[in-house]
Design a protein around this nucleic acid. Structure first.
Lengths: 327, 327
DNA sequence: TTCTGTATTGAAACCGCTACCATTTAGAAG
DNA sequence: CTTCTAAATGGTAGCGGTTTCAATACAGAA
């Protein structure tokens, strides 16, 4: 069943049916109703590929994620992106490279022709090359939470440095003076470096230094193992620049009988909803406006797709402290 | 740039290029090489929509999930499905209804025309109606881990009852005799009911009964709150029919100074990899062969899509015990 | 040399929809 | 009752592939 059948049934031309379908507005009201009735009665759904072929786009945005989606933080992130797309009538087609492959050439190729634009998120190798490639293909690209500014590519991120400052100010304000930092600066995680810099700088404004730095991976497993070192270091608060770390640490400290936040306070970063199950770990954290950010990037890329709107190339969002029970 | 350009460049007809593209085999070797060379040199990629329009399919499978994807178990599940699709040259297009809406009519409609078949997974309302609807649309449907058998719909699941039995036998074998059960039988979760039945039955074979039943939601939060009740009940082991529950319980018990498994053993169900971070909670559990299952369902539905292969309508997999440190 | 059969190739129709342009219709103005 | 203009509708050419069917080439057989 196709548009011609509907046209025949409604006693009009294909063109008119198409116009009704597209809400083009130049159809007499009664004709429109006749067509709509036919569509309803025949249970007709237009063929997406044909539309795409004619219109040159799909209403699908490709999302290439360089992370493990079973990590609640990223799972939630994908959800936000999905919802933002849906609100605009788009679908999100996810492809995860799991950060394994060298770059994400495969993923880009897999999605090519099926999507109207690409959102890249998470850590990946060869990022510049990949972005370049997508731009060469004349496809819209947007970078979500990636530190890389490139003319022609939309970019949405938080101000990590400011986030770090915020954390430091907060802990200082609460009276903590022997403050530790857990992050992944040495392994070169940009976001960690920036948060660290902001944090250190803000502390130094108060004449303080980071009492002890703990280099961990960005997960709960390694953070967990640091419990003893943290205790021995004599800090009264630790800022973990990822909730997953904070979470692992809190868990380990609690198990060792440390009272949180009385003995040691813990502050996270990300606000991973899934982890904050009452009453176990009501983690204090630096929260990112993920929903707004997702909505922003999706709208920007759709603007680019549909109207080639010149968008603000780079959007930076602020974080805020969410005080719960670990500080 | 399109197939005609390539044809012109290579000095052959569109048809020949198309044949090369499709590996149809009726092209002379040297012609084929010529065409391949042209394709390579021009960096040509065929237009997916056009292919789809002509061939009648997309190489995309729609996955409608009625759960929260930021739950690590489901996040991982989606990953397995994605990988299985990719191995077969397909893409998975996820749409999550988050179990909120009445059924998943919206999701089915959103994906219509973009996908070659549907995989439904997770709890949802109005399941039979939705399955019926998809069958009426003449689209392949497959049900993943859903208890509903319908002629015309592929179904892949584990044997939950047997899983329950396995758990009981295992705990009994380890010498536990005062065994508790935490599940969602009263709220009517099919999978929980079946696991519970199998568990209870296997215990009764040994002249035992479930010492205490705890009705919880299928997450860590509520399970956490049961710690006191569990302790007071005097059990020496608890079988939680979901890892998330087991996890919440273990956490709470440890925090209260209970030694696991010496004082109380805990056995989970699902084998959620993400939660098993060393050395915090190395949860003993009933593991499902998720990877195999995902691969099975994807192959079945692709068979249906491509060759209308009469597939085994219903596949049931077995679980196995994974012993770690909580038993 | 001519004929027959098979291996290659190409022309054109088609997939279902949109977009451009032409045509018809209706209503207002003269 | 024309004439003119704007609104409504229809015809048809793409979009970029695949597929059917016909045409050609070439080999071996008669």
């Amino acid at each position: 069943m196709n548009i011609s059948d509907v046209a025949k049934y409604a006693g009009v031309s294909k063109t008119t049916v198409s116009r009704v379908l597209m809400n083009s507005g130049l159809v007499k009201v009664e004709t429109r109703d006749k067509v709509l009735k036919a569509i309803r009665e025949m249970n007709y759904v237009p063929n997406t590929s044909a539309q795409m072929l004619a219109k040159k786009h799909n209403k699908i945005i490709g999302v290439i994620c360089g992370y493990d989606v079973s990590d609640p933080f990223f799972g939630a992130m994908n959800n936000y992106i999905f919802d933002a797309c849906r609100k605009c009538g788009y679908l999100a087609l996810f492809a995860s490279s799991n950060g394994e492959s060298d770059g994400c050439d495969d993923e880009i190729a897999m999605l090519y022709g099926k999507v109207d634009g690409y959102i890249l998120c998470g850590q990946k190798n060869n990022l510049p090359k990949n972005v370049e490639k997508i731009i060469d293909m004349k496809m819209p690209v947007a970078l979500f939470k990636i530190k890389y500014v490139k003319k022609g590519a939309i970019s949405v991120d938080i101000d990590n440095r400011k986030g770090g400052e915020l954390a430091a100010e907060y802990l200082y304000g609460k009276g903590y003076r022997k403050i530790g930092y857990m992050g992944s600066v040495q392994s070169g995680f940009q976001e960690s470096c920036e948060r660290h810099d902001g944090f250190a700088e803000a502390l130094s404004q108060h004449g303080l230094k980071i009492k002890m730095y703990f280099e961990a991976k960005r997960d709960n497993r390694t953070a967990y193992k640091f419990a003893d070192k943290v205790i021995k270091s004599g800090v009264d608060a630790v800022f973990c620049d990822t909730d997953m770390m904070a979470y692992g640490l809190v868990y380990a400290l609690q198990k060792k009988g440390i009272s949180i936040p009385k003995d040691i306070a813990v502050l996270g970063f990300d606000d991973v909803h899934f982890l904050n199950f009452e009453p176990a770990v009501l983690l204090s954290t630096v929260s990112q406006p993920m929903q707004k950010m997702a909505s922003c990037i999706v709208k920007a890329i759709i603007g680019k797709i549909e109207d080639d709107i010149p968008y603000g190339e780079s959007q930076v969002f602020d974080c805020r402290i969410v005080e719960r029970e670990t500080t």
